[in-house]
């Protein structure tokens, strides 16, 4: 994917959260957004995934601009997948029914075809035994892996992850990160927000450092994480890379 974001502005109740953010990537498979809390990562990701419309500026993927009206944005969202920090799944449905819902109601598969579609991925990620459980009966890591599968089985062009592991304990974190690593190996494209720096370094084709509503630096992981040219990057990394 070639991402091109220009002069993005977003305001909530008068406060400017994205302040003319611009970001251009090469033709990469994975982009990781890092930066201090409140810097605007989630706000940016919600715009990229078609959930929010920026107050100003424009975004394009592979040269195709994101639409601004809700109906066209909905069509766009149907071609991508988004996984939030937590509470992704619908608690009144079993894990399996969570997977089937978008396939049947959004993508028009018959229930039988939808079941056939999810069978193999459930097994590959060792979730088949949990498919009939409600979210309340799943561990945090299982919930997130089902949420990722739900985004994946519709065969999206790319996925968006917003801190998918920050609500999980270390063991569950590694099972979710392992899944994302597998997806990368299979060729899945994604944009991910994370505070897992070691993971970011190994998974990212490019890293963008987002702070105060702007991208302060972006590029290959080694360039961003090791050179630390900017004072704000230096202080950010010295705090989280103990």
């Amino acid at each position: 994917m070639l991402l091109h974001a220009r002069d993005l502005v977003q305001r909530f109740d008068g406060t400017t959260v994205l302040d003319g953010l611009s970001l251009t990537t090469g033709d990469i498979q994975s982009l990781v957004l890092v930066g201090p809390s409140g810097g605007g990562k989630t706000t940016l990701l919600r715009i990229l995934s078609g959930l929010d419309v920026p107050a100003g500026g424009s975004v394009s993927f592979d040269g195709v601009p994101l639409p601004r009206d809700e109906a066209a944005l909905r069509d766009y969202r149907r071609t991508v997948g988004t996984v939030f920090q937590a509470y992704n799944l619908f608690p009144h449905l079993s894990a399996l029914d969570n997977l089937l819902l978008p396939l049947v109601h959004v993508h028009g598969l018959t229930p039988a075809a939808a079941r056939e579609r999810v069978r193999e991925p459930l097994e590959r990620f060792h979730l088949a035994a949990h498919a009939h459980k409600r979210p309340a009966e799943l561990s945090g890591g299982q919930k997130q892996r089902i949420a990722i599968l739900r985004a994946l089985v519709v065969r999206p062009r790319r996925l968006f992850f917003d801190e998918p592991t920050s609500a999980l304990d270390p063991e569950m974190t590694s099972e979710v990160l392992e899944m994302i690593r597998k997806l990368k190996a299979e060729g899945v494209q994604f944009v991910m927000v994370t505070h897992e720096m070691a993971f970011a370094r190994s998974i990212a084709d490019e890293i963008a450092f987002v702070s105060d509503g702007r991208v302060l630096a972006s590029g290959a992981p080694a360039d961003i994480l090791d050179r630390c040219a900017d004072e704000r990057l230096r202080s950010f990394f010295s705090r989280i890379l103990i």
Binding site: R74, R77, L101, H105, V106, A151
Partner: peptide, 27 residues
Amino acid sequence: IPQAQRDSARAIGLTPWQTLRLVILPQ
């Protein structure tokens, strides 16, 4: 019903009416 449920519903491409019928009302 938490806002996160509406976000999830929009993220998978449900229409507002589908969101009400399949996600909000059952809960």
